[in-house]
Design a protein around this nucleic acid. Structure first.
Length: 546
RNA sequence: GCGCUCCUAGCUCAAUUGGCAGAGCAACGGACUCUUAAUCCGCAGGUUCUGGGUUCAAGUCCCAGGGGGCGCACCA
């Protein structure tokens, strides 16, 4: 036998003792009832779990290239494969099983006359991990398989994986126990593999264009760079409250001042907001800044990033989303906000009209605007409420009102607007491109205006960031910037309507436990209860308990 | 935070008007030398999310709480 551990009879004896001690009825009801029972006579050398399983090959496609084998014919080629048993069909003195790893699956074929530890193999549970060694053959019924010569257990599955045909539907189970979801439900793991490839594609595109990846602080003394309420945490060593970042923008711009002419970061932002099928308070953002570029050039970079990612995972820039075709081939249509609002609502706004007239037009469309809004703000409110959700896209929506963009340079043709482009796809903005505001005096005025809003009770208005202003005073070249929501891009490219399908562990309310409810002298008892999950009779977690 | 709605075996789901809480799969024991959601026989599995209440009787009706979903609000 190739691996000594397989036949270590002393270890086998120990294993049997542990099973009989840990799993038997006499051990008491606590803990025993929630795990699957162990077959009484399931014990052999193959069940001693080794420390390594070397030289295995991926299960997916392992039989490719053997299509020429006739039914019942062997290839003479021996391979080693490891994975999970996802189907088991013992049939007397032959047995079939499906072994699956993250690349795919392959059928195992075993015979009592040629497979070591055959009896134990037929008693494997769905979900058990095993490693096998065997010849690639075609069975009499025609399926390419691995004819198992010998095998070993790699991990026992003490819990089931749900209905083998229907998987698991309970979304709470799917998200709280994602590891189960990933195995039980076809396609879930693939979505996350695709996400990984999307992120890799983003990095590749930026790298090819000469961008440098950096990491800036997540814990910040001031949460700047966006309009949002932050999460607050406490920095013990500094005796100060800090904030989880809502955007990396201000730090990245300071790096441009410092000479990083093309710089980007992919990381988590945190915004203390509600959850929905399209929002998670913790989300992944790509921000990139390029010296000497403006918003128009940066919009082109977004097109490139999205198109490259689409090609990377779909093989094409024309994809299907929610049953509709979506053509992401650059260049994308560009339209000013005024144009797109007129096109979709049929109501023409004109930046030269009076603010009162604009407000009246907005009201006629059923959109209320804040007191004293400029024409641009009125258009923006109408756009956000009525127009954006109807844009299938992709469309670059250009030129935002200045008061909703405190970090963006004013428009070269109209001081009431800023140079900001939002590419809209499937009714949602997935990114933003800016001509960045680099004038320290103007930036200070904008910050002060934000600070006034903050004093008036707007918790999302920005604070004056003196460190950032000082950096601008050292001189920042004209620059373009982009922000791109990685979660939303992934939703579009993987055709998912719910953000939770692209987040491995989406935010969920924590389950209350006895430990949380314990009071007074219950502390030590509560600690014990946490250690022993089986003694939480009132937990509503019906998967793990009862 | 507000509204609507859901929670039954490990999983997927039933349970008539308020009248004995069930099935399939998984698990467990057994049969089977080519299975494909194998098949067959057997066995076991429940604080019906929790706590109160109404009732002769509650999975079902009422109240409170927990968690999920959707919508609104907040927000990109």
């Amino acid at each position: 036998m190739a691996y000594a551990a397989w036949s270590a009879s002393t270890l086998l004896a120990q294993l049997r003792r542990e099973w009989s001690a840990g799993m038997s009825e006499e051990n008491g009801a606590a803990g025993a009832d929630e795990l699957m029972e162990t077959p009484e006579d399931l014990a052999s050398a193959a069940l001693v779990i080794p420390y390594v399983f070397p030289d295995s090959v991926p299960a997916g496609g392992v039989a490719e290239g053997y299509a020429h084998l006739a039914p019942g014919e062997g290839s003479g080629v021996t391979v080693r494969v490891a994975g999970r048993i996802m189907r088991s069909r013992p049939q007397g003195r032959v047995a079939f099983a499906e072994l699956r790893d993250w690349t795919g699956g392959v059928q195992l074929f075993a015979m009592s006359t040629i497979t070591e530890d055959f009896a134990e193999l037929t008693k494997l549970s769905l979900g058990d991990w095993v490693g096998v060694t065997g010849e690639i053959v075609r069975t009499k019924r025609g399926e390419l398989s691995i004819q198992v010569a010998n095998w070993c257990m790699l991990a026992r599955a003490h819990r089931g994986f749900g209905d083998k045909w229907r998987g698991v539907n309970d979304v709470e189970l799917r998200f709280r126990q994602r590891e189960v979801d990933l195995w039980a439900n076809e396609g879930v793991r693939e979505n996350f593999l695709l996400r990984s490839r999307i992120v890799a594609s983003l990095r590749r595109t930026l790298d090819e264009r000469g961008f440098v990846e950096v990491e800036t602080p997540v814990l910040q003394p001031l949460a700047g760079g966006a309009n949002a309420r932050p999460f607050i945490t406490h920095y013990n060593a500094l005796h100060a409250d800090f904030y989880l970042r809502i955007a990396p923008e201000l730090y990245l711009k300071r790096l441009v001042v410092g000479g990083f002419e093309r710089v980007f970061e992919i990381g988590k932002d945190f915004r203390n907001e509600g959850l929905s099928p399209r929002h998670n308070p913790e989300f992944t953002m790509l921000e990139a800044y390029q010296a000497y570029a403006d918003y128009s050039e940066m919009a082109g970079l977004i097109e490139q990033l999205v198109a490259d990612a689409a090609r990377a995972i779909c093989g094409s820039t024309v994809i299907t989303h929610e049953g509709r075709a979506l053509d992401l081939t650059p260049p994308w249509r560009r339209a000013t906000m005024v144009e797109i609002v007129a096109e979709i609502t049929g109501v023409p706004f004109d930046l030269a009209m009076s603010a009162d007239a604009a407000a009246t037009q907005a009201a006629a469309l059923g959109v209320e605007v804040p007191e004293g809004s400029s024409v641009g703000r009125c258009v923006y409110e109408v756009y956000e409420r009525l127009v954006e959700p109807k844009i299938w896209g992709p469309v670059h929506v250009m030129d935002y009102p200045i008061e909703v963009s405190p970090l963006t340079r004013e428009h070269r043709d109209n001081p009431e607007l800023v140079e900001r482009i939002t590419p809209v796809i499937t009714g949602r903005e997935i990114a933003e491109a800016y001509s960045e505001l680099v004038d320290p005096e103007e930036q200070r005025r904008r910050f002060l205006a934000q600070a006034r809003q903050r004093e008036e009770g707007d918790e999302e208005a920005m604070a004056v960031d003196e460190d950032f202003l000082r950096a601008l005073e050292h001189g920042m070249p004209p620059s373009g910037g982009i922000g791109l929501g990685v979660d939303r891009l992934t939703m579009i490219l993987t055709d998912q309507a719910n953000i939770r399908e692209v987040l491995l562990f989406p935010a969920l309310r924590p389950l209350t436990t006895h430990a949380d409810e314990g009071a007074g002298d219950a502390a030590s008892t509560a600690a014990v209860e946490v250690m022993d999950a089986s003694s939480e009779p009132h937990s509503r977690d019906h998967i793990a308990h009862s």
